[in-house]
Simulated scan of single mutants.
Amino acid sequence: MLVLLPPSETKRAGGDGPPLSLDALSHRELDPVRKELLDELVELSADVEASRTALGLSPRQDDEIARNAAVWSSGTMPALHRYTGVLYDALDVSSLTGAAAARARARLAVGSALFGLLRAEDPVPAYRLSAGSTLPGRPTLAARWRPVLEPVLAALGTDELVVDLRSGSYAGLGRLPGAVTVTVLAQRPDGKRTVVSHHNKSHKGRLARLLAGTRAEPADAAGVAAIARRAGMTVERPAPTELEIVLPL
């Protein structure tokens, strides 16, 4: 089983690993696009105003531009420790130990606007690039990633079950038909349901933690739902590869 996570806008600073080397990353077939984007980010960082526009930053976030300028030379850390925020707080991968930690390292991956696809231990620097960003004079990131990323994802999907927890914009960088997808819904007292936005990430992070550490090897969405239900989550399966986590409002 592979659990595909979204990245986060916020990233942990620093890193005591060596500077970025594409040779150290998984899925080397993605390296040509990775290198193009990395070099373009460095070049863009020389123009602060253009960087703010392309990356959707305010003047108070100019440190993000400095991170991009140093993306080839700054220290690295494993991808799962680089990303922060609500989902990664709920995942809390650092608290997993022993066999559960080993399973998490094997099962967790991150969809990235800059790197395409990262495995848990791939060493990466801090950077800023979102799925919705468009670098000046260049095609959209989806147009650049899909031709190379979708074959990689498709190959993974033939070998193991993929649970795709990415948000819409990141799923758009590389689609994977047949993956198990998860929606978080709130149910009102009258029975009506609405999509959860604010707490969506925390519940997906909790599910990711369950799937990362479990001894079970689910073969389909029903198996994933069973793991979640044993942990007390209310999960429904409206379609063969779709799951809904239902929360009382």
Results as ranks from 00 to 15, higher is better:
residue 6 P to M: 01
residue 11 K to C: 04
residue 12 R to I: 11
residue 16 D to G: 09
residue 21 S to F: 08
residue 23 D to I: 10
residue 25 L to Y: 01
residue 26 S to Q: 12
residue 28 R to K: 15
residue 37 L to K: 04
residue 37 L to R: 02
residue 40 E to M: 12
residue 41 L to T: 02
residue 41 L to G: 03
residue 44 L to A: 06
residue 46 A to E: 14
residue 46 A to C: 10
residue 46 A to T: 13
residue 48 V to H: 12
residue 49 E to T: 13
residue 49 E to M: 11
residue 51 S to E: 02
residue 52 R to H: 13
residue 53 T to F: 13
residue 54 A to K: 05
residue 63 D to W: 14
residue 72 W to L: 11
residue 72 W to D: 01
residue 76 T to D: 02
residue 77 M to A: 01
residue 86 V to M: 13
residue 87 L to M: 13
residue 87 L to F: 04
residue 92 D to W: 01
residue 92 D to N: 12
residue 92 D to M: 01
residue 95 S to G: 04
residue 95 S to W: 02
residue 107 R to A: 06
residue 110 V to H: 03
residue 112 S to C: 04
residue 113 A to I: 07
residue 117 L to R: 08
residue 118 L to K: 04
residue 118 L to T: 01
residue 118 L to M: 04
residue 124 V to M: 05
residue 127 Y to R: 01
residue 128 R to H: 00
residue 131 A to W: 01
residue 132 G to L: 06
residue 132 G to C: 09
residue 134 T to P: 07
residue 134 T to I: 14
residue 137 G to C: 08
residue 137 G to W: 10
residue 140 T to I: 09
residue 143 A to G: 07
residue 145 W to H: 06
residue 147 P to N: 04
residue 147 P to W: 00
residue 150 E to M: 10
residue 151 P to Q: 06
residue 154 A to Y: 08
residue 155 A to R: 15
residue 155 A to D: 13
residue 156 L to M: 12
residue 158 T to N: 13
residue 161 L to H: 01
residue 164 D to I: 02
residue 164 D to V: 09
residue 166 R to W: 01
residue 166 R to E: 00
residue 170 Y to R: 07
residue 180 V to F: 01
residue 180 V to T: 06
residue 181 T to M: 03
residue 182 V to F: 10
residue 184 V to F: 02
residue 185 L to P: 08
residue 193 R to T: 13
residue 195 V to P: 09
residue 195 V to G: 13
residue 198 H to R: 10
residue 204 K to P: 00
residue 207 L to W: 03
residue 209 R to E: 02
residue 216 A to E: 15
residue 219 A to R: 15
residue 223 G to M: 05
residue 223 G to D: 04
residue 224 V to N: 04
residue 228 A to Y: 03
residue 233 M to W: 07
residue 239 A to C: 10
residue 243 L to E: 03
residue 245 I to M: 06
residue 246 V to W: 05
residue 247 L to N: 05
residue 247 L to Y: 06
